[in-house]
Design a protein around this nucleic acid. Structure first.
Lengths: 233, 233
DNA sequence: CGAGCCCTTGATGCATTTCAACGAATGTGG
DNA sequence: CCACATTCGTTGAAATGCATCAAGGGCTCG
């Protein structure tokens, strides 16, 4: 379906993408017009791929609702999950001819899909947006560095604590409760550990009264400070 | 010292930075002029910092010779090494106000130092170079993803095998021999393992006749195909 | 030659994986 | 609505990989 700028989610996602700075209202309005005419919003079901590793890099995507997982698999069957993307994040920020990872919807998700061609065109006409895009790229870079840092850290349970803190930030909306969009296996492949270790990690953190597990996916951070401490010990 | 464009290493490094494409000779010549007037080549001794985590992000750096290590340390004393940079690589490609890692020379290194201000200026005047810069950023992003992928690999020895293959590509100059610029401890912190495990990994790979160790730093890849197989098993 | 540094190797204990069984939640067809 | 299958998560026990502790070897440089 064509992009409907009046939908609350779409606006939120785009605002989060563009950031709160610099862009004057005229530029913004024109840009929105461009988008609504030339790009669309697409709905994906759980498990459906936005694209696969090896596909031509022709679009960028901005999730409006739901959650997207970036992953790469080996011939030998193992898998690395690179990131979980939520509302207002962006994927496909790359000049590479071909995607070198796959993107898959974790649950029912709405996603804005913009062609790279349109994007290049927009960059030429709105330097402010091109600049913002560069900022985003460098922010992503710094996020991945953080992730790499965490991967090198001591214990599996600490890495899990990091993930939960991150998820609270991104999903908690100011509260200490959130709903995990991914499975234990997804978390395991994200943090480089086995499914069972992930599960034991949850149990351990619950036993220490740092978190509470309402059901498999509904998590509460009970002791944020202590959990942070646990993660960075 | 001011940048001497006639020096072979400098040319090589800049060419590798700029890539082999697109830029017409006029643009190139002007750009080189700009650089030689406004930037400099600096020599660093082993262990010396180019910058530290938290320093203002005011320069980008391009190694001409030697090797630079990017690292971040925790308060609790552990360390993550993010990358080893060699001739023609680039560091400081980020819009972040402050570096979020340190850069340290591993051995005697010459480095071209360019102010971010000059760089921005150059981008405005030479769009082709701005575009190239964006390509580089996205290439770096994809390198870090590869690194993240490797960190998720099963065993420590496999990760080491990956590193050695990477080093052969970058240092071997077409041969199967190369000189490692970093210590066992550096490798350990890069791959998220202990120094001892790294050492045992070397011994193991040698025992399997996949590599040969002339001395601690002089390595030969004996069986590239088998080593690749070992790394991805 | 000896000091210092880095690397290697061995022994031990702990963290994590693997294998296996079970439990909870969800969906399906009779 | 209830058996039943299926999927996903938890937990236990055994095996393995890795970190840690500790000792010793080799190289370099004064």
């Amino acid at each position: 379906m064509p992009l409907d700028l009046e939908k609350v989610g779409v606006k939120t996602a785009l605002r989060s993408f563009l950031g709160s700075n610099d862009l004057d209202t005229n530029t913004l309005a024109e840009f929105y017009q461009d988008l609504s005419r030339n790009s669309e919003e697409i709905r994906y079901s759980p498990g459906q791929h936005l694209f696969r590793e090896g596909d031509l890099n022709e679009y960028i995507y901005i999730p409006v609702s739901g959650a997207i997982m970036l992953e790469r698999s080996t011939s030998s069957g193992s898998r690395q999950v690179f990131a979980f993307l939520l509302t207002g994040n962006i994927l496909g920020v790359s000049d590479q001819l071909i995607y070198n990872f796959s993107a898959k919807a974790l649950n029912d998700s709405n996603v804005i899909k913009i062609s790279q061609k349109l994007m290049k065109n927009i960059f030429e006409r709105y330097p402010a947006i091109a600049k913002r895009y560069q900022q985003i790229t460098s922010h992503i870079l710094s996020m991945i560095l953080d992730q790499l840092f965490i991967m090198g850290q001591r214990t599996a349970h600490q890495r899990l604590a990091h993930l939960l803190l991150d998820m609270q930030n991104r999903l908690g909306h100011g509260t200490n409760k959130f709903h995990l969009p991914m499975s234990r296996q997804d978390i395991a492949d994200y943090l480089g550990m086995s499914l069972e270790t992930t599960s034991r990690g949850f149990s351990q953190l619950k036993k220490l009264d740092l978190i509470n597990i309402e059901n498999n996916y509904q998590i509460t951070i009970v002791e944020r400070v202590k959990l942070t401490d646990y993660a960075n010990r």
